[in-house]
Design a protein around this nucleic acid. Structure first.
Length: 268
DNA sequence: AAGGACGCCAACCGCAGCCGT
DNA sequence: TACGGCTGCGGTTGGCGTCCT
């Protein structure tokens, strides 16, 4: 295979390049050819790579295959709870900037995060009968999903065998988190505390970017402890309660046994 | 057992920005 | 400055596997 990469007549192939560009799934042989080419010549210059490696693919296709599949530091497996939390947080800040979000999750690709968002998160929005970019959905994410996600991570870190001990008590003490029209601004302190410090670099680990314990502490120390449902009209309050119930019901599908298993493995 | 519905994910497409000539 | 090639990004699609009836 190595000789196939090195000895291919690049100039000859250039003359044939438009004859039959291959599309569709990559074969194992193509993977080996591309991986060996990159190992020798490095990343970049993908059109040249496609030609000189003898791959009947476009440069774009080669780049995508390398970045999303062949790269040695690709992280396989389910999105973990911490990663889910970070994705939710970063998306609330940056929107559909998948590559930027992916930079904060080592080993994850923008494609993977994009797929995760579309298949999991947008599904939740659909179940809540609201648009994924709507204020309602952002509210439910910020006030229900993210706190509960943090709670689950905390619970897992406390007791790997007990995943459900504390959120109900947390809710009992924090049923005062209705949305307000001003509360969902991107510079809202409620969002800010969840974000990595601006001075931190993308090379820092996931764990250092999101201090989960301090996050929960800050969240629980929010000054507004009164039942703010009373500040809203009956219709608005009913809508919020309905949305919260729906979110609670649909939330469980966001995490699965694999995530719990992963967390447990981290704690062993 | 069969087939239709659904979810997931790899891969493609179009576009924009950058850079060298 | 204009142009063409390359790269990267976000949106979309199609195929495959699983689930459900």
């Amino acid at each position: 295979m190595d000789t196939q990469v090195r000895n291919h007549d690049c100039a000859t192939y250039q003359n044939e390049e438009n004859i039959d560009i291959k599309k569709g799934p990559w074969t194992a042989e193509e993977d080996v050819i591309l991986a060996e080419y990159v190992a020798i010549h490095g990343e970049g210059r993908w059109n040249t790579a496609a030609r000189c490696a003898g791959l009947k693919r476009t440069g774009k296709s080669c780049r995508l295959r390398w970045l999303n599949y062949l790269r040695p530091d690709i992280r396989r497996g389910n999105i973990t709870l911490q990663e889910q939390l970070l994705i939710l947080e970063l998306h609330s800040r940056w929107g559909n900037r998948w590559s930027k979000i992916a930079q904060q999750l080592p080993g994850r690709t923008d494609n993977e995060i994009k797929n995760y968002w579309r298949t999991r998160v947008q599904k939740q929005a659909k179940q809540l009968k609201c648009d994924v970019n709507s204020k309602q959905f952002r509210d439910s994410m910020r006030h229900i999903w993210i706190p509960r996600l943090i709670e689950r991570i905390q619970a897992a870190s406390r007791s790997p065998t007990d995943q459900s001990t504390t959120y109900s008590s947390y809710k009992d003490n924090h049923n005062d988190i209705p949305p307000s029209s001003e509360a969902v601004q991107m510079n809202d302190p409620m969002i800010e505390w969840m974000m990595p410090e601006p001075s931190r670099t993308s090379s820092e680990s996931l764990e250092t970017q999101v201090s989960l314990v301090s996050s929960v502490t800050k969240y629980q120390n929010q000054p507004n402890k009164q039942n703010l449902y009373g500040l809203y009209s009956e219709e608005e309050s009913n809508r919020w309660v309905e949305m919260e119930t729906l979110a609670e019901e649909s939330l469980d599908s966001l995490w699965n046994q694999e995530n719990i298993w992963f967390l447990q493995q981290q704690l062993i």
